[in-house]
Amino acid sequence: MTETSWKKSRRSLAGDSNCVEVRLTPHCTAIRDSKNPGGACLYFTKEAWATFVSSLKM
């Protein structure tokens, strides 16, 4: 995976441990639990991520 930075929601409160972080790469989107950055990640294709995000905007 291409090294890019992890991003936490701008709406997350400082010190809030109930967040996910997202990392966008040219080939996929990765999601992880912000309080366990060394733990498991979920990976989505660009198409699957775009579908997910568009469903949230409805």
Rank of each mutant, 00 (worst) to 15 (best):
D33F: 03
A48F: 13
T45Q: 08
A40S: 09
K46A: 11
S5P: 15
C28K: 14
K46H: 11
S5A: 13
E3G: 14
N36P: 02
S12M: 07
H27A: 12
S12L: 09
K7N: 12
D33G: 01
S12E: 02
G39S: 05
S5R: 15
T2P: 06
R10P: 09
C28T: 10
S54K: 14
T51D: 13
F52W: 03
L42Q: 02
T2H: 11
F52I: 02
A30F: 13
S55F: 09
M58N: 11
R11V: 06
T29L: 08
G15N: 03
G39K: 05
E21W: 00
R23V: 04
L42F: 03
L13A: 12
T29Q: 06
C28I: 08
V20K: 06
D33N: 01
R32W: 07
I31S: 05
R23N: 02
G15T: 01
F52R: 00
L42C: 06
E3D: 15
K46D: 09
T25V: 01
T29C: 06
F44E: 05
A48M: 12
E3S: 14
A30M: 13
T2E: 15
G39L: 00
R11S: 10
G15K: 00
K57D: 11
V22C: 01
A50S: 15
T45K: 04
Y43N: 08
E47T: 15
S5I: 13
L13T: 10
A48G: 12
N18Y: 06
V53L: 04
V20T: 05
E47R: 15
K57W: 05
V22I: 10
A14Y: 07
H27K: 07
E47C: 08
A30H: 15
R23S: 03
S9F: 08
G38T: 14
K7C: 09
P37V: 01
Y43C: 10
G39P: 04
E21I: 02
K8L: 02
K35I: 04
F52N: 02
V53K: 00
L56I: 13
K46C: 13
H27R: 13
E21T: 00
T51I: 15
D16T: 08
L42R: 03
L42K: 01
F44R: 11
S17Y: 10
K46P: 13
N36S: 10
A50R: 02
N36D: 09
S17C: 08
P26V: 06
I31Y: 03
E3R: 14
M1G: 10
A14N: 11
L42T: 04
A48T: 11
R23W: 04
S34N: 03
S5F: 15
P26L: 04
E47A: 13
R10N: 14
A30N: 13
C28V: 11
A40I: 11
C19H: 02
S54N: 08
S5G: 15
C28M: 10
S34G: 04
V20C: 05
K7D: 09
R23Y: 05
T25L: 03
A48I: 13
K7R: 09
S12H: 06
C41G: 09
R11E: 11
N36K: 03
N36E: 01
R32D: 10
W49N: 09
E47D: 12
